[in-house]
């Protein structure tokens, strides 16, 4: 499972900072390291403002002002190593995006060009990257869209003629068109209802199983993580607080934040009163000292207020950033 050759992307010590002015900057991602392997589904969980979207943008190499990224994101393409963060954008656009990595952005139902027919989005992509002729590309797009379970007349429609759910399915189809090795899905299902959510997730998982690539799902919805992911990273205030395999993590979450996140959710068939966390996530312009979670933590100790805990290896593949699990 954990063979070196299976690693398709290795990110080490990533820092992401939004520099708003010389004196104000927001450290949205703080020292995050992760690995993506072949045939792997990784989830990134956390509430809004915890840096999960920023992390994915850095991994994808989509870094625009005022975001400044440090660290290294090494992509392994058949033995060739490329550090994404040291390439320029034209190179990434030409050689990496869509073909090797693709990205399904948040609010993806609004990213289609309103002046282009849906089919032209597909044709443009195929012509640009596979150097196909127009007719050939259109035919391929038709086959592909039927294969994805949609009717081929959607290609003739303009984006506004389709429902939100249909547009979202088109975006997923576009992102998977060139059989990328890594797919980043940033909140792919937030704006849709449960029925469509399941349809979209099925679409993503089916393709992942078929292509055996790695899929990164970013969402705050723990239910989606439980149903889709194999490994899970929980982020809080720009840092990874817990990282583990999904199944044991849901059984017995270690970090108090993960515990609150999982235990506060109401479940069907269970009327037990549930309690949430007090307070709200910290302001990253001015984060609290020590552990970023201590103002809301029910187990906060003295050391938590002074010093930030390191990410501790708790068990094989299970890492947690909390003083409670520090062996002394």
């Amino acid at each position: 499972m954990s063979e070196e050759s299976d690693v398709v992307l290795k990110a080490s010590n990533i820092y992401g900072e939004y520099v708003l002015s010389p004196s104000v900057s927001i450290k949205a991602v703080n020292d995050v390291s992760m690995e993506l392997r072949k045939d792997d589904v990784v989830g990134i969980a956390g509430e809004s403002g915890c840096g999960k979207s920023t992390l994915v943008k850095i991994l994808y190499g989509f870094i625009t002002h005022p975001l400044v990224a440090k660290g290294s994101v090494v992509l392994n393409i058949d033995g060739r190593n490329i550090n994404i963060l040291s390439t320029d954008e034209d190179y990434r656009r030409e050689n990496i995006w869509w073909k090797i990595m693709s990205y399904i952005p948040q609010n993806s139902m609004n990213v289609l060009n309103p002046f282009m027919r849906v089919g032209d989005h597909f044709v443009e992509l195929l012509r640009k990257h596979l150097k196909m002729e127009r007719d050939e590309a259109y035919k391929m797009a038709e086959e592909y869209i039927v294969n994805m379970g949609m009717r081929k007349d959607v290609l003739k429609a303009f984006p506004h003629q389709l429902s939100g759910g249909m547009r979202q399915r088109i975006i997923v189809a576009l992102a998977l068109l060139l059989k990328p090795r890594i797919v980043f899905a940033d909140e792919p299902t937030t704006a849709v209802d449960v029925v469509l959510q399941k349809v979209l997730l099925h679409l993503l998982i089916d393709k992942q199983k078929e292509l055996r690539n790695s899929l990164v799902v970013v969402t705050h919805d723990m239910g989606v993580h439980a149903m889709v992911t194999q490994r899970l990273m929980v982020m809080y205030a720009g840092r990874v607080v817990e990282e583990a395999f999904t199944a044991p993590l849901f059984e017995d979450p270690k970090h108090p934040y993960t515990q609150a996140l999982i235990n506060s959710l109401p479940r069907l068939g269970d009327e037990k009163p549930r309690r949430g966390l007090e307070g709200s996530p910290p302001d990253l312009r001015n984060p609290p000292p020590g552990c970023k979670f201590h103002p809301r933590c029910p187990f906060a100790m003295d050391i938590c207020r002074r010093e930030e805990p390191p990410l501790i290896e708790y068990e094989n593949g299970w890492r947690v950033r909390c003083w409670l699990y520090m062996k002394r």
Partner: peptide, 24 residues
């Protein structure tokens, strides 16, 4: 259908959830 498509907070139900297809 609504209840079946609801993601469960339990990874043990993953396989069952995945098998239940929705006719969309």
């Amino acid at each position: 259908t609504l209840l079946e498509s609801l993601p469960q907070l339990d990874p043990k139900k993953k396989e069952y959830w995945y098998r239940q297809r929705i006719k969309f």
